[in-house]
Computed example of a mutant assay.
Amino acid sequence: MEKLMGWVGATVGSLVGWYLGALVGFMTGACLSLVGSGFGLWAGRKLAREWLES
């Protein structure tokens, strides 16, 4: 479950980063997509761990 939530979080984070960065430019979109992917992976795994503990 943790891996699935990490994958979903990374996908959503990447899309949000790309959308916000693409408003400025292509390279900004690519960089923010990487940052959003990492943040989404962290948040998704953390959320899954909290759900599994309770």
Rank of each mutant, 00 (worst) to 15 (best):
M1P: 07
E2L: 12
K3D: 11
K3R: 13
L4H: 06
M5P: 01
M5F: 15
M5R: 13
M5H: 12
M5D: 09
M5L: 15
M5W: 15
G6F: 09
G6L: 08
W7I: 11
W7R: 11
W7P: 01
W7E: 14
V8H: 10
V8Q: 06
V8A: 11
V8T: 12
V8I: 15
G9P: 04
G9R: 03
A10T: 11
A10M: 15
A10P: 03
T11K: 12
T11F: 15
T11I: 14
T11C: 13
V12G: 00
V12W: 08
G13P: 03
G13D: 04
G13H: 09
G13F: 01
S14T: 04
S14N: 08
S14W: 02
S14K: 08
L15Y: 09
V16S: 04
G17K: 10
W18D: 08
Y19R: 12
Y19P: 01
Y19T: 09
L20N: 07
L20G: 00
L20E: 13
L20P: 00
G21A: 01
G21K: 04
A22T: 10
L23D: 02
L23W: 03
L23C: 05
L23V: 08
V24E: 10
V24I: 13
V24F: 08
V24M: 04
V24S: 07
G25D: 08
G25E: 03
G25T: 05
F26S: 07
F26R: 02
M27S: 14
M27W: 15
M27C: 00
T28S: 08
G29L: 02
A30M: 15
A30T: 05
C31M: 15
C31H: 05
L32S: 04
L32E: 07
L32F: 06
L32K: 05
L32V: 01
L32I: 06
S33I: 02
L34E: 06
L34W: 12
L34P: 03
L34V: 13
L34M: 14
V35I: 05
V35D: 01
V35W: 09
V35E: 14
V35S: 05
G36A: 07
S37Q: 00
S37G: 15
S37C: 15
G38N: 12
G38M: 10
G38H: 06
G40M: 06
G40K: 04
G40H: 09
L41S: 13
W42E: 10
W42F: 09
W42Q: 10
A43Y: 01
A43S: 02
A43Q: 11
G44Y: 06
G44H: 03
G44Q: 03
G44E: 07
G44V: 02
G44C: 08
R45Q: 12
R45E: 02
R45K: 13
R45I: 05
R45Y: 01
R45P: 01
R45H: 04
R45V: 00
R45S: 00
K46F: 07
K46V: 03
L47W: 09
L47A: 14
L47Y: 13
A48C: 05
E50M: 01
E50A: 09
E50Q: 08
E50T: 00
W51K: 10
W51N: 06
W51P: 01
W51T: 08
W51M: 15
L52E: 12
L52S: 13
E53K: 14
E53S: 11
E53C: 02
E53H: 11
S54K: 15
S54T: 11
